[in-house]
């Protein structure tokens, strides 16, 4: 079971991991990945737009795919939307499994697919008042393609 959540507000990664692991004695590995807003070249904010009617369904499909590929993995995905400031967290992926290989692989898979299969778009704002939409990266497509 990999739970999903979409929210504008912040999340507490440590609390999410504690909740996921509570009462479990069968898990030997937990991987937690947090994606952050990076203040490149004077960036002052990042706004995430998304497609409300499709976003949760697509996140669910990604979670189901990971659960099918790594049946022993449990986890959660939390993705934020709206306007975020440098240093703020954008996305949280936590995976846990009896042994570390599956937890690492599932976490990488979830991030690679979230980057390429979930309908979010990032707009960067700069100190001079300008803004621009982030272009999709070929390297993200390559990363996702290795799971084909």
């Amino acid at each position: 079971m990999i739970a999903i959540r979409l929210q504008p507000g912040p999340f507490d990664a440590a609390a999410e991991q504690a909740a996921l692991l509570a009462g479990r004695t069968d898990l030997g590995a937990a991987v937690a990945f947090t994606g952050l807003v990076r203040a490149d070249d004077g960036l002052i904010a990042l706004t995430l737009e998304h497609y409300p009617a499709m976003t949760l369904a697509q996140m669910q499909a990604i979670a189901h795919e990971a659960a099918a590929r790594w049946p022993g993995v449990v986890g959660c995905i939390i993705h934020r939307h709206g306007r975020l400031l440098p240093g703020e967290a954008i996305v949280l992926v936590i995976t846990a499994s009896p042994h570390r290989a599956d937890a690492f692989a599932a976490a990488q898979f979830l991030m690679d697919w979230l980057k390429t299969q979930a309908p979010f778009w990032k707009r960067e704002e700069w100190a001079d008042g300008s803004s621009r939409w982030v272009e999709a990266k070929a390297s993200d497509n390559d990363a996702a393609a290795r799971w084909a």
């Binding site: 954008i90 390429t116 979930a118 309908p119 990032k122 272009e135 999709a136």
Partner: peptide, 11 residues
Amino acid sequence: EIAIFPPVTGG
């Protein structure tokens, strides 16, 4: 419903 958009950039 048909949605038209750029390549996605979330995560």
